[in-house]
Design a protein around this nucleic acid. Sequence first.
DNA 1: CTGAGTGTACTAAGCGTAATAGTACACTTG
DNA 2: CAAGTGTACTATTACGCTTAGTACACTCAG
Lengths: 124, 124
Amino acid sequence: MIHLNLHDPRPMYEQVVDQMEMLAVRGVLEADSRLPSVRQMAMELSLNPNTVQKAYSELLNRGVIYSVRGKGNFVSSDCSRIRQQKLDEIRSAIARLIHQAHELGATTQQCNELLQSFMEVEQS
Amino acid sequence: MIHLNLHDPRPMYEQVVDQMEMLAVRGVLEADSRLPSVRQMAMELSLNPNTVQKAYSELLNRGVIYSVRGKGNFVSSDCSRIRQQKLDEIRSAIARLIHQAHELGATTQQCNELLQSFMEVEQS
DNA sequence: CTGAGTGTACTAAGCGTAATAGTACACTTG
DNA sequence: CAAGTGTACTATTACGCTTAGTACACTCAG
């Protein structure tokens, strides 16, 4: 389910968080479906249970999952809000990049052409 | 010249590198002009000389500056290549973000609208 | 009820990077 | 020659990531 990349400089727990979040938001993981337990996930990924616990805590913090003591961790029922939030973050990131391009001396026209190059034609 | 942000999670030397690079690429720092010495810059920024040295080493590595033993560090004469390289990185970053938006379930049309929203009208 | 499995919360240790501190050496310039 | 410079080390401290181990409250199947 999760694929860890040892060459990725980011910490393991962060990779787990990002991939789980993506799976939940995309609907690959059904709402209210149960996730592997902390210990089981740790076994599968060859990680320490504490590392997985840290990832689950972060996911809980972001509202992607909810925890039930003695039962397990479950996918949150409203991931659409998370999805919209992530799209907003993407929007902000692009804004920062365009601003940075301007700082590098790119003209408005050059920035427009840059953006234009990513426009795709709709398949009919 | 340089402004350090203690709340920025990135290491100090990285902040120095990025800001110096931006100043050099934008032409704020003239080509072949001399930079503050390692020790002087360390004084100004309240950093250890070693930290500044690390930043200068990275800038040397990127081709932004060149060093002359016993004389000082100087702004590289051809920063246009660096500028183009940074613009290419911005292009790649936007590509990744658009790809991420698609992964989040955004349609091609929604991505186009997102890009369109950053298009600016040329001032005449 | 009992025991296995679960989430959760600690402490301790090892490891790597960032940063500071100090020293040393080769070089350039006045 | 002396001051200032780049450069290269070592040692130390601090912090975050990770592993390891333990402990406790809870749920559920038996």
